[in-house]
Amino acid sequence: MIYLQLFWEFFKTGLFAVGGGMATLPFLQAIGESTGWYTYTDLMNMLAVSESTPGPIGINMATYVGFTAAGIPGAVVATIGEVTPSIIVILIVAAVLHSFRNNPYVDHAFYGLRPASTGLIGAACAAVVLEVLTSIQLVAQEGGILKTAALTLDAAAPLGGVLNLRGVALAAVLLVLTNWVPKVKGLHPIVFIGLSAVVGVVFGFAGV
């Protein structure tokens, strides 16, 4: 029964992949290898589509892999399988937190936790900014504790240099619009996303 197998494989992925959508990739690769539902190349194509369509990448990947394996029911089953462990774990964590709400230790832990959470999001932001706006890549050393901070410069980068100039220009305009222009800065984020998509198409941001 392929649906049961799909549910189980994605349940395991959702349970063991810690750290977000990208953390599920190695698990999805292993599923492809053990079941033969799709190849590594298929998976890379699915990743490209998942990144460029609406919805969190991790969900899009689960849906796509499930669809590839068993059509629309497969997409639904795989996605539900992947989110089930999250729902169970988070509901338990929420209940525990709720019952310790007035415990000073929990309060103090969150005092330290909040700036750390912001720091982690800031680090993710820095990685995305480097990837999108520059040709600088922080080379991750898989398996090692230390991530070598080696900066590799891609000589063949579009626009020749280290900076994605059109991207930087758009980012500067967006930064001003979203922070300092009265009336405009209060607009919904999706307005700026839509605007940027149009700018990307008009100015050929991907260079194709």
């Binding site: 490209a48 990144e51 995305v128 900014v129 991207g167 605007l195 990307g200």
Partner: peptide
């Protein structure tokens, strides 16, 4: 994902997402 307009639109969206996450931080 290979369509030119999709690639270009997404390249624009990525820049916007950078700025929005920065503002969020």
């Amino acid at each position: 994902a290979d369509l030119a307009w999709v690639k270009n639109a997404f390249a624009g969206i990525q820049v916007c997402v950078c700025v929005l996450i920065f503002n969020a931080v």
